[in-house]
């Protein structure tokens, strides 16, 4: 019970201090809107194309929404030493890191809702398979958050966290089949695609929103889950090694 009071209050504090601040809320809205608008204009093929770019836009919104937050909630707090207060509290490290990432995961889900709700006004989303899309959005948000966490605990400065996130994020835009199929990538790059979590997330969303997933759902889910577990474990290992040294 005591631990859950701690857990919930860490999440609530981050929400209040970071996520629900006007700049973040507007960023969380504007960013997905900008992506949506840009892609719709670029494809230029009318409303039907919305459905085909929606999975990619949802992925990008989650990816950018979550990874950028960890630089603040973790790296910045470590830098100004507030994180030490958490490390000396009687909260197991696993629970502490889940609390520090819980807000970002929720923020990622909220970011995913923006393009989906917007699209629902423009096109018919009745064939959307919620049984796939809902868990997919959750898992993508979790995997991207943990990727952000992995970066955030591996560096010491906020700008380093941001630079490294971009090092991962921008290649993912092109390599994960978000806007053009992986099959069209040079053969040399294709193995790289399958080493990135978003590839599986985008495939799930494509299947759940327009149909036509390239891989079996079970494989997509299993791969995303494996990324979540590996990234979380690696982050904890790094915190124990670098911050309780």
């Amino acid at each position: 019970m005591k631990r859950w009071i701690a857990f919930w209050n860490i999440v609530a504090k981050d929400m209040r201090a970071y996520y629900l601040k006007p700049p973040n809320i507007s960023w969380g809205l504007i960013f997905p809107l900008a992506w949506t608008g840009m892609l719709f204009i670029r494809t230029g093929s009318g409303l039907e194309s919305i459905l085909s770019v929606l999975p990619g836009v949802v992925c990008v919104s989650i990816l950018f929404g979550t990874t950028s937050m960890l630089a603040v909630t973790v790296t910045f707090e470590k830098k100004n030493r507030a994180f030490e207060r958490l490390l000396v509290a009687p909260v197991p490290l696993e629970l502490l890191m889940l609390a520090k990432t819980g807000g970002a995961i929720a923020f990622g889900v909220a970011n995913a809702l923006v393009p989906i709700i917007l699209a629902s006004f423009l096109v018919d989303l009745s064939q959307l398979d919620a049984g796939v899309v809902v868990p997919a959005v959750l898992l993508i948000a979790t995997a991207s958050t943990f990727l952000g966490l992995f970066i955030a605990v591996a560096v010491s400065e906020v700008f380093e966290a941001q630079t490294f996130s971009n090092f991962f994020r921008f290649p993912m835009l092109f390599l994960c089949g978000l806007f053009f199929p992986i099959a069209k990538l040079p053969a040399l790059l294709r193995p790289l695609s399958y080493a990135l979590p978003l590839t599986y997330g985008a495939d799930l969303l494509r299947g759940g929103i327009v149909g036509g997933n390239a891989l079996p759902y079970a494989l997509d889910f299993a791969a995303l889950l494996a990324f979540c577990l590996t990234l979380f474990a690696a982050s904890l290992w790094n915190v124990r090694r670098r911050w309780i040294a």
Binding site: A6, N9, A82, R85, P90
Partner: peptide, 29 residues
């Protein structure tokens, strides 16, 4: 244990009251 570090490590963006309340929550109050 309770800890008072050599440099303040409370949250600058929270009020004094919220800082104390948050720290108490970390110990499950």
């Amino acid at each position: 244990i309770g800890v008072v570090p050599d440099e303040s490590n409370l949250y600058p963006e929270l009020t004094g009251f919220d800082n104390l309340s948050f720290c108490a929550a970390l110990y499950g109050l």
